[in-house]
Design a protein around this nucleic acid. Structure first.
Length: 380
DNA sequence: GAAACGTGGCC
DNA sequence: TGGCCAAGTTT
């Protein structure tokens, strides 16, 4: 063991909170980069480590698109959407040229739909400016849908800027490495300062991705695989014996339950009556079947009044769905109706349903009334 | 600064 | 099964 390592270990033991010295930081960054070279994940938007040193670089468009998709979303869920988007729209100019409606349809199912609107707004703005991305955190942060994290991530990964990239993974890794007892949210400034100390001048983009890969594959929320961790010996939480205890979080408030009714109107040929939700707010700009407000009392006496129009509504079932801040129970009604279209509604043909901008909750509703209706038809 | 904003996977 | 969590941003 190198003398500097002994010093570092002693310091960690003395403080019990991890070594924050410059030498300690350099050591940790170097270990992480070496680990990343050997164990990085291959992802559709990622280039191999050391790209900038070889004179290559990832396309900022692909990094931006992946980062927006990855906001609060798992890598596995994003992969297929990312491939679809880059195939449909290979450049920011192509995305800018696309109708917003097509973008919403392609985003359907991924959630947090304001991301799709901001993505489109950002593409439009950049296309008008010649299609080039800003190459600094400050410039990126000005763009729609790009906040502190995403600006730092694009600056680091696409432009190799030494930005402090702090996401949920990094918060977990840092809070363990330095055994931070302060509950999350309150600890964020402290975590950011520690990351700023760690970011190396060489390969900052790879360092950011290394931290996130470590959090995703080794330093996981539950049952971290500390025996495989490149910075296990530097980790204060390991020293304390229970890394899983970090990060410390405040207890959460429980979710209220809302109820409502949804109405699946079916035409003779199997077409389904739909409408578009307002651009702002919950499921903004997405498509839905007619529903009551989602707080309405649902019982036999109110059902007829709650329906958007008179029909022979039959109870088709009940679906449950959990959003970020409330749970929803929808009573689903089904009826066959004539061809006239109520104001603000439109018919979607059976073979078009799967391509509509239907959020998952609405697919559940339609499936409850007409099993298989939202599944993609397979050619035979 | 708190609240709004989706969805799927895991145990 | 229900709570937790995931590469956060906007208002």
């Amino acid at each position: 063991m190198a003398p500097q390592d002994q010093t570092r270990k002693a310091a960690a033991k003395n403080t019990g909170t991890g070594d924050t010295s410059e030498a300690g930081s350099r050591h940790i960054a170097a270990r992480l980069l070496a680990w990343y070279d050997a164990h990085h994940r291959d992802l559709p938007w990622r280039v191999t480590p050391g790209a900038f040193a070889r004179g290559t670089r990832p396309a900022p468009y692909r990094i931006w698109l992946s980062e927006v998709m990855l906001q609060q979303t798992t890598v596995e869920a994003v992969k297929a959407y990312f491939r679809t988007f880059v195939e449909k729209w290979p450049t920011v100019e192509a995305l800018a040229a696309a109708p917003t409606e097509d973008v919403m349809k392609a985003w359907a199912g991924l959630g947090y739909y304001s991301r799709a609107r901001n993505l489109k707004a950002c593409a439009d703005l950049l296309a008008r400016r010649g299609g080039r991305f800003p190459d600094t955190e400050a410039g990126l942060k000005e763009l729609p849908g790009i906040g502190v994290y995403t600006a730092a991530a694009i600056a680091a990964i696409a432009f190799d800027r030494p930005a402090a990239v702090v996401d949920g993974n990094v918060e977990r890794v840092i809070s363990r490495l330095y055994s931070i007892e302060t509950p999350l949210s309150e600890a964020k400034p402290e975590i950011r300062a520690l990351v700023e100390k760690l970011v190396p001048q060489e390969r900052p983009g790879d360092f950011a991705q290394a931290m996130m890969d470590l959090g995703a594959t080794i330093c996981t929320p539950r049952r971290p695989r500390c025996m495989l961790c490149p910075v296990c010996e530097d980790c204060s939480a390991v020293l304390l014996g229970n890394p899983e205890r970090f990060p410390v979080r405040l207890p959460k408030n429980d979710k209220p339950l809302r109820r409502g009714a949804a109405f699946v109107a079916e035409r003779e040929d199997g077409a389904i009556l739909l409408r578009k939700r307002p651009d702002k707010g919950l499921l903004g700009g997405m498509t839905e079947v007619p529903t009551t407000a989602w707080t309405a009392r649902i019982d036999g006496a109110t059902t007829q009044d709650a329906a958007p129009f008179a029909a022979d509504w039959r109870r088709a079932g009940r679906i449950g769905h959990v959003f970020t801040h409330f749970a929803l129970e929808l009573e689903v009604f089904h009826a066959h109706i004539e061809d006239d279209v109520p104001e603000g509604h439109f018919w979607s043909l059976a073979h078009e349903i799967s391509g509509e901008a239907l959020p998952t909750v609405m697919k559940k509703v339609i499936e409850a009334a007409i099993p298989g209706a939202t599944k993609k038809l397979r050619p035979h």
